[in-house]
Amino acid sequence: MHNLDFTGEDARWDSLVERLRGRLNVLVSSFMARVAEIPEYAEGRVNLTEMQDTARETFSRLVDGLRDELCHHPGKGDASDTLRQFSSELGAKRARAGVSSEALTSAVRLDFSILWADLLEISDPGDAALLTTRVDRVWRVVDEFATQTHASYAMERVRMAQEESNIRREFISRLFSKSELSAATVSQAGAALATDAEARFSIVAASGDAASKLRTAAAQGGWNQPHQRLFTHEFGGSTYVFWALPRATGQSAPDGGQDYIPAAINGIPCGFVPGFMGLRGLPPAARTAERLALLLQPDDHGPLTAGAAWARLAKQQLQGAGLDLWADLDASLANCRGGERERLEETVRHFLTTGSITTTAQELFCHRNTILNRLNRFEELTGISLTVPDQAARLVVAWA
């Protein structure tokens, strides 16, 4: 073994470090061979030439960081400063390239093992004690480099996510701000939202407490898949959430149909327009969803579609025109005695739901003739025959 004093150890260490600097090509070749085993790098996520240049610069700066001179003369810390700056640039660059955090970690971890393996190769058997005293330094330099690289990577990912979110909000606002959308706007919005602009979409709208619940549900997501997102828009006191439905030829929604609504939204009172075609159809669908939300009643505990709310909408329109079907019906039934009115209304409501005298009798535990007598009595009082569709429709609207 070498019998070196402290100064001699420093000199020997600096000599080994200098030999490392002369072997940059070896270090880079070793790194390139091993990083190719990481799938994202092997797939060409990072340009090969750029990766080689980066590896050479990385090892050059790491080797500079191993010199004893920097430790004994703190004022000469330019190498450490430039290494931190370089690692910050590298982390941001890998984030922009779309390299995952796991792949980046795997690549950076190679630096220590490659450096240490080469140190062992160029050292003499008598350098064992020296290497033992310097292993912490090698690890510290590489670890600082890795830590700064990952910190920069994380900051860049946050910045990119914020930028992406701002771009999405901008294009969503464009979609909602125009009643007629140009082909260019639709295409650009689809690209910004990373979704097929020609797919089928569904939308819900709500205000007040329900709007707050919608925002929470949208943050939770719909399907547990990143490319099937819930998009949110706020305007005029209303919250809108829309999403693309899977194509029939690809994945299918959990219930297999265009009426699918995410579980987190399913229990929220809101206006719901399912399965409209393309982002071009978003403005009219949003207006319909908002209109349906205005028709919600206290006993509604989930999404309301036009199919379920058509009678409410018709009643609202008729009342706006000065026609009150309920007032006429109420006056016609005012002469009922005792519980007759309640029995008649119950029977008629069941019949309007089922369309069957037999089923109505079974549901109300009555004889079939009793149901017929009540329907005849109702017609006698109101002039409304439930067997005539347009008259039955008037009744459905009056009771909406």
Rank of each mutant, 00 (worst) to 15 (best):
A79G: 03
V35G: 01
Q148P: 04
R312L: 10
L279G: 09
S332N: 12
S60N: 03
L372Y: 02
E290S: 03
D127R: 09
W13M: 08
R337D: 04
E340D: 02
P389C: 08
R159H: 06
S113Y: 01
N224A: 11
G65P: 08
A95G: 09
A314K: 00
E144I: 14
A189H: 12
F59W: 05
R229Y: 00
H367V: 10
T232W: 07
G275F: 01
L90T: 06
F242Q: 01
V99C: 03
L130N: 05
S101H: 10
R96M: 10
R215F: 12
L304F: 07
T232V: 04
L48F: 12
K93P: 01
P303V: 03
T133D: 10
I384D: 06
A308T: 10
R337C: 03
D328Q: 06
R337Q: 02
V141G: 03
G75W: 08
Q228R: 14
I265W: 00
E121I: 13
Q251F: 12
E102N: 09
D390C: 15
T195R: 09
V388A: 07
L364W: 02
S100T: 11
R94W: 01
L66F: 07
A33T: 09
G8A: 10
V99D: 04
T133S: 11
D124Y: 07
L24S: 10
G65T: 07
Y41L: 12
P283T: 06
K93V: 00
C336R: 08
L325F: 01
